[in-house]
Design a protein around this nucleic acid. Structure first.
Length: 444
RNA sequence: GUGGUUGUAGCUCAGUCGGUUAGAGCGCCGGAUUGUGGUUCCGGAGGUCGCGGGUUCGAGCCCCGUCUUCCACCCCA
């Protein structure tokens, strides 16, 4: 073991047990998406660099994995000069699923029946520094609809969130905000020209507290005349209803603010699970293509950042030359959802990652053949069964079963009678080898 | 991208001030016992101390680089 091999930084392998959990989540999400009228789409792992660059802000651009050109690309670089990124890379791994989707819509806009709804479950890559729950390769599960400005889309996607997390048995809080409200607040507090500075600072309220936010806002040039009002806004925790009332008098006759307020009210009045939804005026979200409602989902009882996010983007396809196609979408973070469910022990105990039953290898050759035939018959009946191939020490065979997580072990066969041991409690039962009903009963 | 942290047997970890042949528990392999594993006993294998340089008479230990882990920023799922 001079040099143990490893996966690259921020990536991992998934074994059978991992995959059983991941597939459980993915299958549930896929069902939820299709139940709500979304159809599947897959796009390539990598896109042209131009497609991705400039869509995620400066910070995002830096985290895009660029793919080195093949061939002798360095010839074009002047002697002794440092090559420019565009000279050595013209493709990049996708950074999220939304921008490739916008590219797809723009590329096919004449052929798609609008409004167009699709879901997409694929990995994305970010050249980030890994931490707990942060990887450089991770899965997003997105549902988007383009070509409809209807606020019923907002309602429907919030409902999709609550439906899916309900099915997953993961308690969450769906936080809701609106870019127009943020903009109105920023104007009210003198940050009209520095919306991003304002939202970035305010978004950290949970993390650095009122003092921290005020400090950062001062550094970004907050006018002292607004600090008192800012402090009042930030230090009082408000329910959704209280936030709405507060907004009403704060926004005044700011037309954009009033518009945002009307839209948020429309959505809040119609979501199916209002108890799981909270209006959070400090929620900002970094991706700068959002223009309307924005969402973020936090798992309750787990400190792991957000497990999902999304929002409305009015202008994304216009970057690709197709104007007037408003879109809205949400994303589920598969990897974090799995981590949360693990931490909360919320996976169903019936998840299957190993054969249901293992037949120990009998010492007697005739019995071995008989038992092997039984295993074959079980497989034909849809029972995942395994036959230990060698007449190894009993101890070794049991250890193998345990390591693979196999609960039921066939000790021996006598005529048509098999003796099955539950390795968890040592109980032995016997049953007829063709009594599939009894066998299947064991596994549930 | 910034600052820090981690790496010793399959696993969890000791290893003093730089000093001889690198340690434990569990696991693994073999044998005996146990009348179909899990008990007990005996024996055994397995490590160029993440990798590459350097300092030193001598490096697991000190220095530099690199990879990896985790953490705080930044940002985000």
């Amino acid at each position: 073991m001079a040099s143990a091999p490893s996966t690259p930084k921020g990536t991992r392998d998934f074994n059978a047990a991992d995959l059983a959990k991941r597939r459980y989540v993915v299958d549930l999400l896929r069902q939820a998406f299709e139940l709500h009228g979304f159809g599947p789409l897959e796009t390539p792992s990598f896109e042209n660099l131009d497609t991705l660059m400039g869509k995620y802000g400066e910070e995002g651009d830096r985290l895009i994995f660029k793919i080195l050109k093949s061939g002798n690309f360095l010839e074009a670089v002047a002697e002794g000069a440092a090559p420019k990124a565009s000279q050595i890379a013209d493709k990049a791994l996708r950074y999220d699923l939304t921008v490739p989707f916008a590219r797809y819509v723009a590329q096919n806009h004449g052929k798609l029946a609008l409004p167009f709804k699709r879901y997409q479950i694929q990995p994305v890559w970010r050249a980030d520094r890994p931490q707990k729950g942060r990887f450089r390769e991770f899965y997003q599960c997105d549902a988007d609809v383009v070509g409809s400005r209807s606020l019923y889309q907002e309602v429907e996607l919030v409902d999709l969130y609550s439906y899916a997390f309900d099915r997953l048995d993961l308690p969450v809080e769906i936080r809701l905000n609106h870019r127009a409200l943020l903009a109105a607040l920023a104007r009210r507090f003198g940050f009209g020209a520095a919306l991003v500075d304002f939202t970035v600072a305010v978004d950290k309220l949970d993390k650095i507290g009122v003092e921290g936010v005020l400090k950062e806002l001062r550094e970004k040039g907050a006018d002292e005349s607004h600090v008192g009002a800012l402090e009042d806004w930030l230090s009082v925790p408000r329910s959704t209803q209280e936030s709405l009332q507060y907004l009403e008098h704060l926004v005044g006759d700011d037309p954009e603010g009033l518009q945002g307020l009307t839209e948020i009210r429309f959505v809040l009045d119609r979501v199916s699970r209002p108890d799981a939804v909270v209006l959070d005026l400090t929620l900002a979200r970094g991706l700068n293509y959002y223009t309307g409602a924005i969402f973020e989902v936090r798992a309750l009882g787990v400190a792991l950042g957000s497990v999902g996010g999304g929002g409305r983007y009015d202008d994304l396809t216009s970057i690709f030359g197709v104007k007037g196609v408003s879109g809205i979408g949400i994303s589920f973070g598969l990897d974090r959802i799995v981590l949360c469910l693990e931490e909360l022990n919320a996976f169903p105990s019936t998840l299957q990652s190993a054969p249901q039953i293992l037949a120990l290898h009998p010492e007697n050759a005739a019995a071995a053949d008989a038992l092997y035939a039984a295993v074959r018959a079980w497989r034909a009946a849809g029972i995942s069964a395994e036959f230990y191939p060698d007449a190894a020490a009993t101890k070794k065979q049991y250890a193998w079963a345990e390591q693979r997580g196999i609960t039921w072990v066939v000790q021996r066969i006598e005529g048509d009678e098999v003796f099955i041991k539950n390795t968890l409690n040592g109980e032995v039962i016997s049953c007829n080898k063709t009594d599939y009903e009894a066998l299947n009963k064991l596994f549930n």
